[in-house]
Amino acid sequence: RRRVRAILPYTKVPDTDEISFLKGDMFIVHNELEDGWMWVTNLRTDEQGLIVEDLVEEVG
């Protein structure tokens, strides 16, 4: 499975499927959606939700 790491922190918009995260958080990518969004699991918090790919980098 594809893994990505947050390069910046992010605070979710209330009442959306987004998740908040810290710089350095690792995610497993489940689905890549339109307009650069990804459905992921945050490995630190075990939370699932949407993040935008501009805020993460690939992990080898």
Rank of each mutant, 00 (worst) to 15 (best):
L33M: 13
E32S: 12
P9M: 08
W39V: 07
D54Q: 11
E58C: 10
L55D: 06
T45C: 02
A6E: 01
V13W: 09
V52P: 12
W39Q: 05
V29F: 03
E58T: 14
Q48G: 05
V29E: 01
K23I: 10
L22S: 08
G60K: 14
G49S: 00
D15K: 08
I7W: 06
E18D: 03
E47C: 13
F27C: 02
T16Q: 03
I7D: 03
P14W: 07
V40Y: 00
V52N: 13
L55M: 13
T45D: 04
L55K: 12
F27G: 00
I19L: 12
T41R: 07
M26G: 04
F27L: 05
L43E: 12
K12P: 10
M26L: 13
V13P: 06
V13Y: 11
N31T: 14
K12R: 10
G60C: 15
G49Y: 01
I19D: 00
D54C: 14
M38S: 04
I19V: 08
M26T: 12
E18C: 06
Y10L: 04
D46S: 15
E58D: 13
V59Y: 11
M38R: 04
M38N: 03
R44W: 03
I51R: 00
T11F: 09
E57G: 05
S20N: 07
R2D: 05
K23Y: 08
L33W: 13
I19H: 01
E18R: 04
L55V: 07
T16W: 03
M26R: 05
E53G: 12
I28E: 15
M38Y: 09
D46Y: 15
D35Q: 14
T16I: 02
A6Q: 01
T41D: 03
I51F: 00
E18V: 05
E32T: 14
I28L: 11
D54F: 14
V56H: 02
V52T: 10
L50M: 12
D17C: 15
L22F: 09
E57A: 08
L55E: 03
E34N: 15
I7E: 04
E34F: 14
E47K: 07
V29Q: 02
V29A: 02
D17N: 12
D46R: 15
E18Y: 04
F27S: 00
D15W: 09
E57R: 08
I28M: 09
D25Q: 01
G24T: 03
E53T: 14
R3C: 15
Y10T: 03
G49P: 00
I7S: 06
P9R: 06
T45A: 03
T45P: 02
N42D: 04
V56I: 11
S20I: 01
M26A: 06
K12V: 03
F21V: 04
I7C: 09
W37N: 07
E58L: 07
L43Q: 09
R1K: 15
V40K: 00
T45M: 03
T45V: 03
F27P: 00
S20T: 08
K23W: 06
Q48P: 05
G60N: 12
E57M: 09
T45H: 02
M26W: 09
I7R: 11
L8R: 10
A6H: 00
I19W: 01
D35E: 10
Y10I: 03
I7V: 09
A6C: 04
N31A: 09
G60T: 13
W39K: 05
L22P: 02
L22T: 08
F27D: 00
L33R: 14
D25Y: 02
G24R: 03
D46T: 14
V56Q: 02
T11V: 13
D35G: 15
V59G: 06
N42E: 01
L43S: 06
I51T: 03
L22M: 11
N42S: 09
W39S: 05
G60I: 14
I51K: 00
L8K: 10
M26Q: 09
I7N: 06
I51A: 05
N42T: 02
I7A: 05
G36I: 03
L33E: 09
G24V: 02
S20A: 04
D15M: 12
T41W: 07
V4P: 02
Q48A: 08
L55R: 08
I28R: 05
H30S: 06
D54P: 06
T41L: 08
G36H: 08
I28S: 08
E47L: 07
D25C: 02
K23G: 08
T41C: 13
I51W: 00
V52Q: 11
V59H: 07
K23F: 09
R5H: 05
E32D: 11
V29W: 02
P14N: 09
V40H: 00
V4F: 07
L55W: 12
N42H: 07
G24H: 07
R2Y: 06
L33V: 12
E57F: 05
M38K: 04
R2H: 07
D35N: 15
R5V: 11
N31C: 15
L33G: 12
E18L: 06
R2V: 08
E58W: 05
V4S: 02
E18N: 04
P14M: 09
I28C: 14
R2Q: 08
E34I: 14
W39T: 04
G36W: 02
L22W: 08
I51H: 00
D15Q: 11
